[in-house]
């Protein structure tokens, strides 16, 4: 079990302070939601955790260990998997291949064994495939296994991205707007999926979300930010009743 701690982190793009002295921590086994108006810096927080950007100051720790020493491709080895706001799938590969790429961290670079398909490879491939099938079943993706991702409908693509993160067997899952672009039914479905991820798989979820119905339904704790700064934190209803949060949503500068 691990804690994710973001401590006094700041980041600027040119003159724009995208994240400004922000701190929060996520408890294990919970669903933690970040809300805030457009451009508040939510996705940037994910990109900071995933080491796409270097914070100007502050520290990000997971399980007591600082992530700042990790390179972007090493973040997954700490057990942190993510999805992207604008779906970043491997478009020209099948859904199954997308999931198998998700298993990447559970293997080693062994060129000769791969090129000659030595006996160990088949065993490994079967193991990856079993894990992929588990997740396919978990997310009801059975019908799409061999379809090219580029040809799938939007809702399925969103699910595929979540599935790809799950096959990596992470300890913590970062979801960037899991319901954006989905129909009402698909959003309801997403709520159940997130609850199952927490309950059945025991994976901690950090989610960025705009749909307040979904936020209310699944969040254990909510953090509101605006212009990169901390606004409020607490239960979903506490945060929504906070006057600063209401002001931020109503008209930014009015606060």
């Amino acid at each position: 079990m691990s804690w994710l701690e973001v401590e006094n982190v700041s980041l600027a793009f040119g003159g724009l302070k995208a994240v400004d002295n922000l701190s929060f921590s996520v408890e294990p086994g919970k669903v933690f939601t970040i809300i805030g108006p457009n451009g508040a810096g939510k996705s940037t927080v994910f990109n900071l955790i995933c080491r796409i950007y270097d914070p100007l100051e502050g520290d990000i720790r997971f399980g007591g260990e600082s992530l700042l020493g990790a390179r972007p491709h090493e973040v997954i080895n700490h057990g942190i998997a993510r999805t992207f706001q604008n779906i970043e799938l491997f478009e020209h590969a099948s859904l199954l291949d997308n999931l198998l790429i998700g298993r990447f961290r559970h293997g080693r670079f062994s060129p000769l064994s791969e090129l000659f398909f030595l006996p160990g490879q088949l065993r490994q491939e079967l193991e990856h495939r079993r894990k992929a099938e588990e997740v396919i079943e978990f997310l009801d993706l059975e019908g799409y296994r061999h379809a090219r991702v580029a040809d799938l409908p939007y809702g399925v693509r969103k699910k595929t991205e979540m599935a790809r993160a799950l096959v990596a067997s992470p300890e913590i899952l970062l979801l960037d707007e899991p319901s954006s672009g989905l129909t009402t039914e698909e959003t309801d479905d997403t709520a159940f999926v997130i609850e199952d991820i927490r309950e059945d798989l025991g994976i901690t979820v950090v989610m960025i979300e705009h749909d307040m119905k979904l936020v209310n339904k699944v969040s254990d704790k909510v953090l509101a930010i605006n212009e990169g700064r901390f606004l409020a934190t607490g239960s979903a209803s506490e945060v929504q009743d906070d006057p600063d949060v209401q002001a931020a949503y109503l008209g930014g500068e009015a606060a």
């Binding site: 491709h73 992207f84 970043e88 790429i101 990447f104 491939e125 790809r164 990596a168």
Partner: peptide
């Protein structure tokens, strides 16, 4: 053989999306 194992899939991942290939450990 390359294509049906880990390294080959990593190449295809990089071709289609470097950010997410990286986020998965490549």
């Amino acid at each position: 053989n390359l294509l049906r194992t880990r390294s080959g899939r990593a190449l295809i991942a990089i071709r289609d999306s470097e950010v997410s290939a990286r986020s998965l450990g490549t």
